[in-house]
C-alpha cells in the first residue's frame, strides 16, 4: 500500500447523494481476476453512453474539473461490498474522497487500499461543493498527519476524524494483514481456550 501523508490537489465535485457501488463500478465489470484496470470503468454508466462515448455533461468529461480529490454527496459507497469500487476510484487517480457520510464497508475497503475517506459535516460539504463549482482551480490541502483539511479561501482549517491505528497504517503504508499474521500465537491460544467451538 502506498504511503499517505499530505496531499495538495484540485478536486472533482459530484454532488449526488447515496452514490452506490453499482454506480461506481457496475457488476458487469467485475469479471476481472486482478486488481488493475477498473479505473477506466469508474462511474461507467454516468460517464459513457451505450456506445462507449463520453457523456459531455458528466463532471469527469466537461474538462472543467480535475484532481486527485473526489467530493461527493452524503452516504457515499452504499450497497455492494465490492472492493472493486475502491480500486476503481484509486485506479482513476483519486487519493481522497470527501463526503459528509460514508457507508461502512466502502470506508473499510478504501482505507485498506490507501484511499482516504474524509468525512466532513453536511454544512462543510455544501460550502466545499459551492467553492469548487465556483472556482474549479481551488486547491485543497489534505493533511493526514495533522488531520486537517485546508481550503485556501477559508480562514478556518477543517479538522477530521480517523481511527489512530488506521492513520498509522496509511502514513506508513501498512496493511491489516501484516498485523494479523503476527498475532498467530494469540489466535491459536484463543482457539484452544474457547468454551464453545464450531
Amino acid at each position: 500500500m502506498e504511503k499517505f501523508e499530505v496531499l495538495q490537489s484540485t478536486a472533482v465535485p459530484l454532488p449526488i447523494e447515496n452514490i452506490d457501488t453499482d454506480q461506481i463500478i457496475p457488476a458487469r465489470f467485475l469479471k476481472a481476476t486482478s486488481r488493475e484496470g477498473f479505473g477506466e470503468n469508474l462511474f461507467r454508466d454516468w460517464r459513457f453512453d451505450n456506445a462507449g462515448q463520453p457523456k459531455a455533461d458528466f463532471v469527469m468529461n466537461t474538462g472543467r474539473y480535475s484532481g486527485q480529490i473526489l467530493v461527493a454527496g452524503k452516504n457515499f459507497g452504499c450497497g455492494s461490498s465490492r472492493e472493486h469500487a475502491a480500486w476503481a476510484i484509486y485506479d482513476a487517480g483519486f487519493k481522497v474522497v470527501i463526503s459528509s457520510f460514508f457507508a461502512d464497508i466502502f470506508k473499510g475497503n478504501a482505507l485498506n487500499n490507501g484511499l482516504l475517506p474524509l468525512q466532513v459535516s453536511d454544512e462543510v460539504l455544501a460550502r466545499l461543493l459551492g467553492q469548487i463549482e465556483e472556482d474549479p482551480q481551488t486547491t485543497l490541502v489534505v493533511d493526514l498527519v495533522k488531520q486537517e483539511l485546508q481550503v485556501p479561501a477559508w480562514e478556518e482549517k477543517i479538522p477530521f476524524e480517523i481511527d489512530a491505528y488506521k492513520k498509522e497504517c496509511l502514513i506508513n503504508g501498512y496493511d491489516d494483514i501484516d498485523y494479523l499474521v503476527n498475532q498467530k500465537d494469540a489466535i491459536e491460544q484463543y482457539e484452544k481456550s474457547r468454551p464453545w467451538a464450531y
Partner: peptide, 22 residues
Amino acid sequence: FGIGTSQVAQVMASQTLLLSKP
C-alpha cells in the same frame, strides 16, 4: 457481515479481522 477482498485475504491468512465493535 459482508467484507471487502482485502479482508477476505486477511481471514484466509489469519481467520481474524481487525474490527471496531459496531
